[in-house]
Simulated assay, not measured.
Amino acid sequence: MTQTTLDPIPDASLPTMPGQRLARGVCRHLRALDFAVIEEFVPATGLRVDVLALGPKGELWVVECKSGRADFQSDRKWHGYLDWCDRFFWAVDQDFPTELLPEDTGLILADSYDAEIMRMGPETPLPPARRKVMVQKFARHAALRLQALRDPAAGISGV
């Protein structure tokens, strides 16, 4: 993981929110592991995961990015994410008090530029029907986001 505290060249693509910066580093790392990633994905009504990653073998990982103690302690929904993935991870920066995180979840240390998996989350395979639904949602969501990027005037919303 890159330990950059001062970037000599301003990066206009760098997100302003701390959680989004962590998500960027996580997504870069997961791409290097051959995962496709989507940020801010809604698996079910009332849930929004920070990162959903689809692996080369069809595995689905959820990564929740926490910028600090208060952010983690105020998260009451994370248990609901477990039903929508094969593995669950927290992504935090190097200053986060990791002893707060449940030991039976994955842990990723991240910054704006990269990340490192410190602890694998336990594998809890999705039932085949739910996996099919999630992979289809992933594909549809990714395609709609790409179309909205390429043709903003198309009026695509909700992605």
Rank of each mutant, 00 (worst) to 15 (best):
Q73V: 11
E39R: 15
E123K: 10
A129K: 04
I9T: 15
E99R: 12
D93A: 09
D93T: 06
H79S: 07
T105E: 04
H141S: 12
W84E: 06
L33I: 09
W78I: 05
A153S: 14
P18F: 06
A129G: 01
G155A: 11
F72W: 15
V92P: 00
V42D: 02
V62G: 01
M118F: 13
R87W: 06
Q73G: 01
Q3K: 11
H141Y: 09
H141Q: 14
D111G: 15
L144N: 11
L60N: 00
P102W: 04
A44Q: 06
I38Q: 08
T4Q: 08
G25P: 07
S74L: 09
F96P: 11
D11Y: 03
K57I: 09
A110E: 08
A36F: 00
I108R: 02
V135F: 01
E123I: 12
Q136T: 13
A129Q: 08
T98A: 08
V37T: 15
E59F: 07
F41I: 01
L107Q: 05
E99W: 01
R150M: 09
W90N: 04
E116C: 14
Q94A: 15
A23H: 03
A139H: 05
L126M: 08
V49E: 02
L144Y: 05
V26L: 02
H29I: 00
V133G: 00
A139I: 08
V49D: 02
V37L: 01
D34E: 13
P10A: 13
P125I: 05
A139E: 05
P152E: 01
L149R: 14
A153D: 11
V62P: 00
R69H: 08
K137F: 03
A12K: 05
V133L: 14
M17T: 04
G55K: 06
G55Q: 07
L101M: 08
E99L: 09
E103Y: 12
P10T: 11
E99G: 10
L52M: 15
C65D: 04
P43F: 04
A110V: 14
L47A: 02
V62A: 12
T16D: 12
D71R: 02
R145S: 04
K57S: 10
R28F: 02
I9Q: 08
A129D: 14
L149H: 11
T4M: 11
T4S: 06
P152D: 02
L149N: 11
E103A: 15
P102R: 06
P10K: 10
A110D: 11
G158C: 12
A12H: 10
G155C: 12
K137S: 14
T5D: 13
T98C: 13
V37H: 00
D114C: 10
P128C: 05
M134T: 00
S112N: 05
D111M: 08
V159S: 09
C85H: 07
R48G: 03
E99D: 14
A129I: 07
E59M: 10
R21W: 03
L30P: 00
K66Q: 04
Y81W: 00
V42R: 06
A115L: 15
A23S: 13
R28Y: 05
I117L: 09
G106K: 01
A23G: 11
A44K: 03
K137T: 05
I156F: 05
